[in-house]
Amino acid sequence: MSEQEQRAVERELTMSRAMVEAVAHEMREDEEVFYMGEDVADYGGIFDSTEGLLEEFGRDRIMDVPISETAYLGAAVGAAQEGMRPIAELMFVDFFGVAMDQIYNQMAKNTYMSGGAVNVPMVLTAAVGGTYNDAAQHSQTLYGTFAHLPGMKVVVPSTAYDAKGLMHNAIRDDDPVVYLFHKRLMGIGWMPAPDGPKTPVPEEEYTIPFGSADVKREGEDATVVTLGLHVHRALEAADALAEDGIDAEVIDLRTLVPLDTETIHESVAKTGRLVVVDEDYQSYGVTGEIIASVAEDGLADLEAVERVAVPDVPLPYARPMENEVVPDSEDIESAVRSAHDA
C-alpha cells in the first residue's frame, strides 16, 4: 500500500469523540462559542461529552456551573440573544423539568414572540436513554416532548459520523438546537456500546443538514423508521429478518425537527409497510407523528403499520421489567414480521 492508501484506512471514532472534535473545531474558529454544564470541566462530562476540552480551552470557555439549571440554561438563552453561541449541557435530559420554562417559554419562543427580531443561536445538549437500569428519573429520552413544543430544532445522532456533522451544524445554526445523545452510543468504557456507532470519521469539518434522514439499510419489504440507539437495534433485527428472506429498510431520522417526511414517504411507497420504533413513550409521541404524516400524504401506499415504543409507563428499575418495556431487536423483528404478514 502507498502511504496515502494507508492513511485512507480510516480512523474510527466513538460518538463522544466525534462530538468533541466538532465542538473543539467550532471553538477554535469562533471565540463566541463556549460550553457550560455540570461536571463538564475537570470531569470532561459524565458521558465524555467534553472530554479533553478543558485542557485546550480553559475554564473561561469550558465552564462548570452550579446545579442551577434554570439559571445557566437561561443564561445561555441570554448570551445567545446577545449574539454569542453557547452550548449548555443538561447532564441527563430527565432534568429538563427543573428548567423547563427557560427551555420552552424562553429559548424556544423568543424568536417567534419577537416577530423574528431576536434569535437564540444556542445548543442544548443532553444525555438520553436507558438500558442500564437507572430507573424512572434517569432513563428517559423525551424525544417527543422536545419535538412537540415549537421553536426548537431536535437532533438525535446514532453514529459518530452523524454526530460530528450534526454538531457542526447545530453550533452554526442560528436557532436553538436540542442535541440529544444516547448514553449507550457514546462509546464509554463503562457503558459498552453496541457495534455500529463507532464509525470512520473524517478529520476535517463537515456538516450534515438538518431534515435529512439517512437510509442506514436499504430494503424492499418493510420500512423501519427509528432514531438513536434503536437504529442499531433495528439493523440487528433487519439482519435476522434477512435470514428469513424479509428485506427491511432502516431509516435513521437523525433530526426530529425538521422532520424528513420525504425520505419516509418514498420508502413506504416502495415497501407498503411501515414500522416505527422509538425509545420514548408511545402515546402522543414520535411513532404517532410519523404514522400520521404517512397517512396524510400516502395513505394509499400503506398496507400495514406497526409501532414499537415504550408502553406508557415510567421506566422501571429492575432488569426484567426494564427489558420488558424498552424495545429490543426481537420486538422490532416481530413487529416487522406482523407488518409483513398483514
Binding site: I67, D94, V98, N133, D134, A135, P316, Y317, A318, M321
Partner: peptide, 29 residues
C-alpha cells in the same frame, strides 16, 4: 431489584419509599 423490595423493584436505590417509616427519596437534586 427484587420483587419483595420496597417498590417491588420499580424504584431502585435512588427511589426508595417506605411510608410506614415516613421516608422517601428522589434522584433529582
Amino acid at each position: 431489584g427484587r420483587e419483595s423490595g420496597l417498590s417491588s423493584g420499580k424504584g431502585g436505590h435512588m427511589h426508595l419509599f417506605d411510608p410506614d417509616a415516613g421516608f422517601a427519596c428522589s434522584g433529582i437534586i
